[in-house]
Design a protein around this nucleic acid. Sequence first.
DNA 1: TTGAAAGCGCTAACAT
DNA 2: ATGTTAGCGCTTTCAA
Lengths: 341, 341
Amino acid sequence: MSDGTPAPVRPTLEEVARVAGVSRATVSRVINGSPRVSPDVLVVVEKAIAELNYVPNRAARSLAARATMSIALVVPENAHRFFGDPYFADVVQGISERLDDSDYVLNLQLTHPSSPSEKTRRYLLGGNVDGAIVVSHHSGDHFLASLGRSLPVVFGGRPLGQIANPGDYYIDVDNRLGARRGVEHLIARGRTRIATITGPADMPAAVDREMGWRDALAGAGLSDHRIAHGDFTEAGGIRAALVLVDEHPDLDAIFVASDLMASGVLLALEERGLRVPTDVAIVGFDNSPYATRGRIGLTTVAQPSLEMGVVMADTLLRLLAGEQVEHVTMMETSLVVRDSS
Amino acid sequence: MSDGTPAPVRPTLEEVARVAGVSRATVSRVINGSPRVSPDVLVVVEKAIAELNYVPNRAARSLAARATMSIALVVPENAHRFFGDPYFADVVQGISERLDDSDYVLNLQLTHPSSPSEKTRRYLLGGNVDGAIVVSHHSGDHFLASLGRSLPVVFGGRPLGQIANPGDYYIDVDNRLGARRGVEHLIARGRTRIATITGPADMPAAVDREMGWRDALAGAGLSDHRIAHGDFTEAGGIRAALVLVDEHPDLDAIFVASDLMASGVLLALEERGLRVPTDVAIVGFDNSPYATRGRIGLTTVAQPSLEMGVVMADTLLRLLAGEQVEHVTMMETSLVVRDSS
DNA sequence: TTGAAAGCGCTAACAT
DNA sequence: ATGTTAGCGCTTTCAA
């Protein structure tokens, strides 16, 4: 294409047919692996395909077959939030792995967190994809929330109550129970003045983890007034930790709703001269690379993010294949104990 | 789509035409913003479109117009490498921003680093996209290297010598000069026993930065034998730093080919009881978030990654518009001085 | 097992 | 300014 060189003309199915000396229908059958092709014809056609370096035109194929064989991964986040969070890396990797075994290709649509652009809308509704996976932990997006009515959609993470449709499919972990187990571990270690740093209030995962923290404290008859709000970023973790130690100097443990924030908490505590875990024990959530990158290994509630990606893709694929699929898939968390508790 | 509910039938252009009482051609003109439509007809058609909730079918449109209005971002990395590197986040953000102002949609193709799958090949060659941006810092991939012959392609980063085609388009920074300036800064600070930690030898950026390091040392008559090889990961930075201080205990500075690795170097030096910058001065490369996340701010060679993304997209867009475009765009690096030097 | 023929939903000359 | 008419490259009945 350089320098105005005309684009190389791609051979069409018709030319393959001509070269092979068969009809277009037969070539089409070969391409689609139909059993109704005699072995010798198959050889001839495949030779012609190889010879011409033929690659089927997908637009034409989609149009005729009414299937695009591609699915969208919709991420209502800006690139930085998306890339900064190792959770997404795992999910995407998992989805890719599952899709590698299928005929579908993935294409990623980054959209604005608040309201997907008209372009995204058109893309999703314009017959570009056969289905979509939405990894959104945000509420408030009406279009995405109702996307399931126009297209097979699988959500990563439970949609927030008010926008969930009964027919939705989603994959999630039991954030509440996981958080509870994490806090119970702190209690078992003898901690009694346990604070928490939450995630954004518009994310179900954040809300659920806070509830799990309360569950555990209530179960042990402990007070749940030590709380600060974060935003799932490291800087937010630092800020929240400073607020917490100033307001509740007596705290002896913090359950932090994400490892990324917990990593900030570690920095903040060090700055204040507090030792982990001697003075303050920490439990994070995710078991992301951040849990092991500092000098102090982070005790954390692990979620199987990669596997969640696999299951999301698998669920959508089965949906597309017309199978009956469970609407909700809950995956297990587990506690990983390291230095910080 | 839940529970086998039949997919809602999407209205076609023909139905819009019928409802509006005009021909299909007219509706098509309205959709494509042709000026050859009378104001009153335009109103009627737009009303019909809104009423029917019509969204054009892109496959049909692509087929007829011979343009897909979408471009591929090809990333020959696994999800973890891709997500782990803030450089990519910036580039993607930049590309997205530029594309937001255009009619093109982006779709991201993660492929295996060594050899893109047959699926990727088919996707790229099957008329799914009008052009591609390849952000590869790897050599050895013949398919991607020659992709420019079948499709308008812009490369992020210079392709390695042996696989570069004269007609290729690429956007890069002057890694060599940037590295040289970084090392010269160390020399100006009075350092004389300056080591380096390189990136993978199959990446042009890594090779160029090493050469820049040599340039600076040669210019000052200093020795360039203190060298260790890394892999652009934090763990690799740690390993390389340990090797370096063991083999060359006299070193007083290290030029590290990426901030991510430099962040590992900081950890390693601390472990060895070496103070930064008192005992050892450090200069990184990228000016990524890692440069500012630790206690010690990292002096680093900044590259305008986000803007590079913008320029990549812009270059491809102009190429697609049939404009004459420069083959090589070099962008400037700049030195950001912080605590570590 | 194979071929002929009729579209899939849209755009783009060419008329008018 | 608007309509008519051919396709774009493929899949898919329907016959043979």
